Each structure stands twice: as structure tokens, then as C-alpha cells.
Amino acid sequence: MGLLDGKAAIVTGSSRGIGAEVAKFLAAEGAGVVVNYRQKAPRANKVVTGIENDGGRAVAVGADLTSAEGPAALVDAAKVNFGGLDILVLNASGGMESGVEEDYALKLNRDAQVNMLTAAAEAMPAGSRVVFVTSHQAHFINTVPTMPEYEPVARSKRAGEDALRELLPQLEAKGITLVVVSGDMIEGTVTATLLDRANPGAIEARREEAGRLYSVQEFGAEVARMATADVPSGHTEYVGGADYLGVAG
């Protein structure tokens, strides 16, 4: 028996990277998982196949969270395929990609997060859990500077966290808890790759400062763990970057 037998989860941005690992961990505990992708259906289908081959339940659903209909499509998929929704992992983020509109980071990292949670909360029973994934660089952006290439994204993600925290009273009234997971830079993520491309040597420098960086799988395990952790609503779980936390106070 898994910790999440009979439960249903949505993991946004889960066709690869951290989101894919979180989806696998939740499925391994018995949850039916909606694997969300924006454009790359083959990658999402590969994640689903892997989960199913391991005896789990999952479905791939294409949805752009910045669109009006995207969040509702994911919630509907959870209800149709798994009978409801108990866990929402807000993992999708971006803003460093080339060719996106100027305000895309804020649309995705703040507005879409709020819209996704608002749509999900309507279907989530008391006892449900929401997990928001962020970075130390974003979480502490108001007190600790980050590299200029990442600052606009960091500020948009901090704005998203603040907007979600403003919903805590409404979530509490429904019996839904919100937990934030803040991590140091993670080896092998798209963000780390783009940062290193924009600022060569940035990841190596951060690795030396921190001593080591978490892998995608290691961080994914920590995010998944917070789906059932016995912590109060509004709790922030810090992963890695002890030196960073010391500077941030």
C-alpha cells in the first residue's frame, strides 16, 4: 500500500526534468498522475509509459497554463481519469526562453500559478495539498541579489509565491494546505542550462560556493515528499544551499 493509494495528482510542467521526477515519485506511492506538457507530447507520453511500466497510473495532458482554458483542462483530466484531485504540484515555470513575449515570465510564474490553483481548489476536498516549487534565488530575491540574467524571472517567481500566499485564508477555509519548496540551483535543469549559456561558468561557480548541487532526481524526491509531509500550511521547505540560507538569514 502506497501513501497515495486512491489519490489523484496534477504536476504542471512534468514532461521532463523536476516535474517528471515528481510525477514518477507520486505514482510510485499510488497516486494517479496528470502529466502536463505544453508542446512536447512525445516526452510526456514517455513519462506516462515509464510510470505505467512500473505499475503506476498516469495520463499525459497538453495544456498551456497561460491560456484561459489550460488549468480547467488539467482539472477535468484528473476528475475524468482518476475520480478527483487531491494533490497539485505547481512546478511549471519559465521566462528565460528565447522568442517569448516581454511579460511572459510574469504571466507564467505569477498569473498562471494563481489561475491553476484557483481552478484546482474548486475540485479539491479538505485535506488536499498544494506544493509550489521555487528557487532560493527567487524566494530570497528581495534580500539577496542574483545574477542579472535571472533577476526578471526570479522576481516573477517571487511575485507568484506572494500571490499564492495571499490565497492562504481561502485555502484554509476549504481545508487545503499550501507548502512551498525552495531549492538551490539544480544540476541538469533547463534553467541551469540557459543560465550557464547566458553567463558561462555560473553553474560551476555556484557548485563551488555550495559544495554540491542537488540532481534533478534528488530534488524531485524532496518535492514529492512534501505532498504528504506533516507540516503546517504556508511552510517553506528549503533544499540545499546552506551557505545561501546563511547569507539570506
Rank of each mutant, 00 (worst) to 15 (best):
P125C: 12
P125D: 07
P125V: 08
A126G: 11
A126L: 05
A126N: 07
A126W: 01
G127S: 06
G127D: 10
G127F: 02
G127E: 03
G127K: 11
G127L: 07
S128K: 13
S128R: 14
S128F: 03
S128H: 09
R129C: 05
R129T: 05
R129F: 00
R129L: 02
V130T: 03
V130M: 09
V130K: 12
V130N: 08
V130W: 00
V131D: 07
V131R: 13
F132L: 04
V133W: 02
V133D: 02
V133S: 06
T134W: 05
T134H: 08
T134P: 15
S135G: 13
H136S: 06
H136W: 13
H136D: 06
Q137G: 13
Q137K: 15
A138K: 03
A138E: 01
H139G: 11
H139C: 09
H139M: 10
H139E: 14
F140K: 12
I141H: 02
I141G: 00
I141T: 11
N142Q: 15
T143C: 06
T143A: 15
V144C: 14
V144T: 06
V144A: 04
V144M: 15
V144F: 14
P145R: 14
P145Q: 13
T146E: 12
M147S: 06
M147L: 14
P148T: 00
P148N: 05
P148L: 06
P148W: 00
P148Y: 00
E149V: 10
E149C: 13
Y150V: 05
E151M: 15
E151V: 14
E151F: 12
P152G: 07
V153H: 10
V153Q: 08
A154L: 14
A154R: 13
R155L: 06
R155W: 04
R155N: 02
K157I: 09
K157N: 11
R158S: 05
R158K: 15
A159C: 14
G160T: 05
G160A: 04
G160N: 04
G160F: 01
E161C: 08
E161R: 11
E161P: 13
D162R: 14
A163T: 05
L164K: 14
R165D: 13
E166D: 10
E166H: 12
E166A: 14
L167R: 09
L167E: 01
L167F: 04
L168R: 13
L168V: 03
L168G: 01
L168S: 01
P169W: 12
P169D: 08
P169A: 03
Q170Y: 01
L171V: 03
L171R: 07
E172L: 08
E172C: 04
A173T: 05
A173G: 12
K174H: 11
K174R: 15
K174G: 02
K174T: 01
G175V: 02
I176V: 06
I176Q: 07
I176P: 07
T177K: 15
T177L: 11
L178R: 03
V179E: 02
V179Q: 09
V180N: 07
V181K: 07
V181Q: 07
S182D: 04
S182C: 02
S182E: 02
S182F: 00
D184V: 02
D184C: 04
M185C: 01
I186D: 02
E187D: 12
G188Y: 03
G188W: 09
V190R: 14
T191C: 07
A192D: 03
A192H: 04
T193R: 15
L194G: 01
L194H: 10
L194T: 08
L194W: 03
